[in-house]
């Protein structure tokens, strides 16, 4: 018994302390979301009366288009995830497998670009989109379409780089065999590469989805209308903006918005971690 204590007690103590640390803010959000008073103050650690008022407010109050925000976020993030993977996979295949002039230089430029933090070029993107607005108001500053285009461009570097790494790891014997059998590069791509890469493509798409869902500052600068905002920008308004310090609805909204992400993350944990270690750190 004492041997067990000596060997394992510190393990459990460390585990428990860190679990409390990890859970504390999350637990606080949950009880706040069921608390009608709207403050983040802990009245007691075990909630006495549970109220769904905050949740109801999100879905019924006309000044808070929560459902629209949620829909905006999901649509923008899904669109970016799917398109950036479709376009990125094709480019990755070319950079990994096909021969063309300037390929080496291209790969080096790609390496540099994918480590460039998008936020550094924020003012330039802003000015460019301001100009686009003068001739195409549907695409420029203040539109979701414009924001999607910027996200797509931004996701492209990292996605191509991650996927290229994956294609590099597929043995070349496979496509050489296909080539001998008379397959064109297009056929090799669709018949050999895509089926092999399907799980990786899914993970990269999910990473893009989470990254886009989490993006704040571009969405904040770009989407001015209440109706066109994403859920991240919208929720921030509860505590920073015009509603000011409304923690109850904020907590409820955060929980609903987080649930899909947490579920995706936990169920695909293993793949996502391996994808992250291969590429970059969570954004």
């Amino acid at each position: 018994m004492t041997k067990w204590l000596r060997e394992n007690l510190w393990r459990h103590i460390t585990g428990i302390i860190m679990c409390v640390f990890a859970l504390f803010p999350l637990y606080l959000v949950v009880i706040t979301s069921f608390n009608e008073s709207g403050s983040l103050k802990i009245t007691s650690f075990i909630p006495t009366d549970i109220s769904f008022a905050n949740y109801k407010l999100l879905f019924t109050d006309e000044r808070i288009p929560y459902m629209t925000w949620m829909k905006n976020s999901l649509v923008i993030a899904s669109f970016v995830a799917v398109v950036s993977v479709v376009v990125g996979a094709a480019s990755a295949f070319a950079f990994s497998r096909l021969k063309f002039k300037g390929k080496k230089a291209g790969i080096q430029i790609l390496l540099l670009i994918q480590m460039f933090p998008a936020i550094l070029a924020l003012s330039a993107v802003y000015v460019i989109m301001e100009r686009v607005y003068t001739f195409a108001p549907g695409l420029g500053l203040g539109t979701q379409a414009g924001l999607i285009l910027i996200y797509l461009g931004g996701a492209m570097g990292v996605n191509i780089w991650l996927l290229k790494g994956f294609v590099d790891s597929i043995p070349t014997e496979l496509d050489e065999a296909a080539k001998i059998d008379g397959a064109t590069p297009v056929q090799t791509y669709w018949l050999i590469f895509i089926p092999l890469a399907a799980p990786v493509l899914a993970v990269v798409a999910l990473l893009s989805f989470i990254g886009t869902f989490n993006e704040f500052i571009l969405a904040r600068l770009f989407l001015v209308d209440m109706e066109s905002r994403t859920v991240a920008v919208g929720l921030q308004q509860f505590i920073g903006g015009q509603f000011s310090e409304n923690w109850g609805p904020f907590a409820a909204g955060s929980i609903i918005a987080s649930i899909p992400i947490v579920i995706i993350f936990l169920s695909l944990q293993r793949y996502i971690i391996s994808g992250l270690t291969a590429g970059s750190v969570k954004g």
Binding site: F95, I113, A118, A124, L149, G153, P185
Partner: peptide
């Protein structure tokens, strides 16, 4: 131009929304 068929869309997006803003910065 088979390789170009594969990477043109990606490269166009990168040029428009990453490389140009970097140069513009």
């Amino acid at each position: 131009r088979v390789p170009l068929k594969f990477f043109l869309p990606g490269v166009l997006l990168l040029t428009a929304f990453v490389i140009t803003p970097i140069l513009y910065t």
